[in-house]
């Protein structure tokens, strides 16, 4: 697998008033890899995501996203919606954010908003000439069906998203992110609240997104079973600082990581060091 970076984070610092949430963080996510960010609660993982996806502007630092064709985007300069639209970064949320009153299918069509807006003449033309727009919408429905199939939600296409069980909502959020045709997929604790079987399915889905769709993934996860099994590279944060980086094997044996986790919860240390072998 080629090892060119898709996302390069350089010297990123994020302050909220006097609080330093991220302190001079630098790391690289390789193209076609699953890069995981782990760390104890409050380590600043979600803040990193919020900086990458534009909800926060980092106080200092540079976030460079590079496409295969060499186009680069400086994410800290882009508005949040442009980060998805042009830099092609998609994300999910720790506390699921679906359009609960819309159907599963509608959720996936909203995700293709910009393509469809263009196809429908910014919706105004299509008011009077729906026949020109219909084929494009059918394409969008096909893409949605593809991802519904991949996530096992095809049978629920016409159900309101809010009526789905928890695990299905998590999968739907991933499907929705994928419908924006991203280059980099950022997942914020996708395995949280899943049972072991669902967790296993999620592993397979993420690996297939990486291997078959060739999409890079950035993953925040507490479930070490997921992290250790599928990550190509792991970045460990503690109190906003990077304390370790490397392959799962390297991270698992890193004394700094063990110390950081020992300071927090025994269970997680066990998972981090031995649980996933």
């Amino acid at each position: 697998m080629s090892a060119t970076p898709i996302l390069t984070v350089e010297h990123m610092t994020m302050r909220f008033g006097g609080l330093v949430a991220i302190d001079d963080l630098s790391f690289v996510a390789e193209r076609g890899h699953i890069t995981s960010i782990i760390g104890p609660n409050g380590a600043g993982k979600t803040t990193v995501f919020n900086c990458i996806t534009g909800f926060y502007k980092p106080t200092t630092g540079r976030l460079t996203l590079t496409h295969e064709d060499g186009t680069t985007y400086f994410l800290e300069r882009l508005d949040d919606f442009r980060i998805n639209r042009f830099a092609r970064v998609a994300r999910t949320f720790q506390n699921i954010r679906l359009f609960t009153g819309m159907t599963v299918l509608e959720n996936l069509l909203v995700a293709q908003h910009n393509t469809l807006m263009h196809a429908s003449g910014y919706s105004l033309l299509a008011v009077f000439m729906p026949h020109l727009y219909r084929p494009k919408e059918n394409d969008a429905v096909e893409l949605a069906k593809y991802w519904l199939d991949r996530t096992g939600l095809l049978a629920h296409a016409d159900d309101p998203a809010g009526s789905l069980p928890y695990g299905a909502q998590r999968r739907l959020e991933i499907a929705r992110a994928m419908c924006t045709r991203p280059k980099l997929l950022c997942l914020d604790e996708p395995a949280a609240g899943l049972n072991p079987k669902e967790s296993e399915e999620l592993n397979r889905l993420l690996v297939s997104i990486r291997d078959e769709e060739n999409i890079s993934i950035l993953l925040i996860e507490h479930d070490m079973g997921v992290v250790m099994k599928i990550s190509d590279r792991i970045v460990v944060l503690d109190y906003g600082k990077k304390i370790a980086e490397g392959t799962p094997e390297e991270v698992r044996n890193d004394p700094a990581v063990i110390a950081a986790y020992l300071g927090v919860e025994d269970e997680e240390v066990e998972q981090a060091t031995g649980g996933a072998q």
Partner: peptide, 8 residues
């Protein structure tokens, strides 16, 4: 917020 992450 979800809308904005979808490029809207």
């Amino acid at each position: 917020i979800a809308c904005r992450t979808l490029g809207i």
